[in-house]
Structure formats: structure tokens, C-alpha cells
Simulated assay, not measured.
Amino acid sequence: MKRKMIWIIGLIMFFSGAESASAAFWETKGDNFIHDPSIIKEGHTWYTFGTGHGKGLRVIQSNDGMTWKEAPRIFSTPLSWWKMYVPNHEENQWAPDVSYYNGRYWMYYSVSSFGSNQSMIGLASTDRISSGNWRDDGLVIRTTSANDYNAIDGDLVIDKDGNPWLSFGSFWSGIKLTRLDKKTMKPIGNFYSIAARPNHSGAIEAPNITYRNGYYYLFVSFDKCCQGVNSTYKIAYGRSKNIVGPYYDKSGKKMLDGGGTILDSGNERWKGPGHQDVLNNSMIVRHGYDALNNGQPTLLINDLYWDSKGWPWF
């Protein structure tokens, strides 16, 4: 009887205590349509930035992280210099990443031709998101058909010593990483390869790196997005003690060799979750295609947890 009572008490503690918050899902509502989300909080306001689908980069905002409304778009008119690098595709503004560093908010964004690596990553910045005034900081990286990688999906990461780096990449030879100048926030070093799928279709993209307790965690998206409920997108991860790798998944396989432990592959309602963004090691956002709403890409937010061995879960 005593053992049974201990077991019952244990169950009560599990379901009523801290563990009950595991997999806590934020029930977003309102204008929560978004693709390739990046989330940040300024003051008391949440902002999520996403792919523009030909009308400028989409922005939504919220006072509580749950109820969202549309905010003014960024680059509703394409910048004139984009056509030098991606002619005839200036309307394809994708995958913004917004981060705060050294007193400014930095936004890396992509302009690309779909299915091609004629692409570029640009940069804009502001001292206040709420002002709506973004300074054009120009070109960061470009690629052409002569390259074996793709300049899209840029994502800023700050290493343990306070140095900025940019991860990026999609398909081709996979995910790259380069160090940035602290003032210009542009590349100053080598390009490192940190993840790939060499024996696969090459479907890996949307890198996001976060540092926690001695490890750099690399999150990526596998397989195909943008197919509505037929999307096969999923989120995978690995970690390394060095920001430039090598990154290993939970089974010990290198991410450069196609490794990656699956974190989220969706469910009956939310199909093809991906293009993830981890904030403060405590929450993860991504889009998922809503099977109950004609496959609309929707903002998904979960609390993020870490197990006793330092691996993420939710």
C-alpha cells in the first residue's frame, strides 16, 4: 500500500508540477498567418517576421504572444540594388531573421529565385522595431550557379565570447557558417560547412544555432516545405562544443554526414513544421501547415525544455 501511495503521489506531482508544462503549446490566434518565422520581443510587444510572398516581408505583432495582428510590412517596394544580384526575382523576399546585438536590431533576409541558387542575403537594421524605420545595410552574401551552396536563410548567432556569426544555406552542399565583423555585421572569415545530407536529395535548410551550457545546438529543417498539407518538412538538431563543428546528433552521427535527431515532424493537424527559431533557449517557433484550414502556414510556438543530458525537447 505504501508503495502504491508513493506512485500515486508521484503521478500527481508529475501532472501538477513543473513537468506538466512540458510540451506547453501557445494557442496563437488572430492574424497568425506566417511562413519562415523569426520572433523577438521589444519592450512589452512581440514581433514575428516572415516571408513576404511578393508583398514585402510580413510582420505580425502581439501584446501577449497569443493574439496576433498584422503590422506594416518591410520592403513593400523592392530595393533598387537587388536586381543586380537576382534579376527578375526581386519580389521573392524570404526568411528574415531578426536579432538584437550591440544596441541594434539586425535583420538578415533573402532574395532568391525559387529552385535556383541565384540568391542573396541582405541586411537591414534599426534601433527600435516599433519605429518602423529600417536602415538599408546592403549585401551580405550572394551566390550564383557557379557556387555549390545557396545564400538564403541567414541566421545570426552570438558565440560564448560575444562574437557574431551567420549561419545560412539551403539544399546543394548544405549549411554554412561564417564569422561577422562586429561593426558592419558582414563576413570577415572563412565559410565553414557544418551540416549536409550527402546521400539524400539535399533537402536541408533554415539553420538556427543557440549556445547553452558549453554546447552549440544546431537546428535545421529537413525535406520539403511549401506544399501545404503535403509538405514533408521536419525539424532536426545536433550539437557541438565548437561553433564551427563538428555537430553530432544524439546517436553520435555527424550532421555533415546526414545526421540529425528529429525534434518535430508534425501531427494530424500541423503538417510539415519547420523553419524554426529558438529564443532565449526557452521557446521555439516554427510554421506548420494547418490541415483544418486548407493548409495555411501558421505560427506555432512551444516552450522548449532540455533533458538531463542537455538535449532539447518539447
Rank of each mutant, 00 (worst) to 15 (best):
G43L: 07
F191H: 05
F33L: 11
G138K: 06
M84H: 14
D36K: 00
K160S: 15
L299G: 13
E70F: 06
I284N: 01
G122K: 01
D36Q: 00
I243G: 02
S240L: 04
K254L: 15
G52P: 00
D257V: 00
L299C: 12
M1D: 14
A71E: 03
Y217S: 10
F171Q: 08
G52M: 03
G258D: 03
R104E: 14
R269V: 15
G65W: 01
H53I: 07
W306H: 09
G252C: 06
H44E: 15
D264G: 01
T184V: 05
I40G: 10
A291W: 01
E205V: 00
I34D: 01
M185E: 08
N242C: 08
F75T: 09
Y192L: 06
Y248W: 06
E90D: 14
T144Q: 11
N293R: 08
V278R: 05
F14A: 15
N242E: 15
N267Y: 09
S38I: 06
A71R: 01
L300Q: 15
S119N: 12
I60D: 01
G132Y: 07
D264I: 02
G266A: 02
D264C: 08
E70M: 07
Y289G: 01
D36T: 03
K253S: 11
M107G: 04
W46K: 03
G115S: 04
D153A: 12
W81A: 00
K241F: 05
P297R: 06
H200L: 12
R128F: 13
H275A: 11
Y149R: 10
N280L: 06
A24H: 14
D36L: 00
S130A: 15
N267V: 08
N92F: 05
S80P: 13
T77D: 14
V285C: 14
I301E: 13
I141T: 09
G274F: 11
A23W: 14
S130N: 12
G245M: 06
K83V: 11
L57Q: 08
K4C: 13
F219S: 04
A18D: 13
F75Q: 09
D153S: 08
A24G: 09
F75A: 05
K41V: 13
G174C: 07
T45L: 07
Y47T: 11
A95V: 04
F314H: 09
V244A: 11
G169S: 03
Y217P: 11
I60H: 04
A18Y: 09
C225S: 13
I121K: 01
G138C: 05
M255V: 02
I40T: 14
G54K: 05
L263E: 02
F14R: 06
G54S: 04
G258I: 00
D159P: 07
V140S: 05
H44D: 15
E90N: 04
M107P: 06
D307G: 07
F219T: 10
G295E: 03
N293I: 03
Y105P: 14
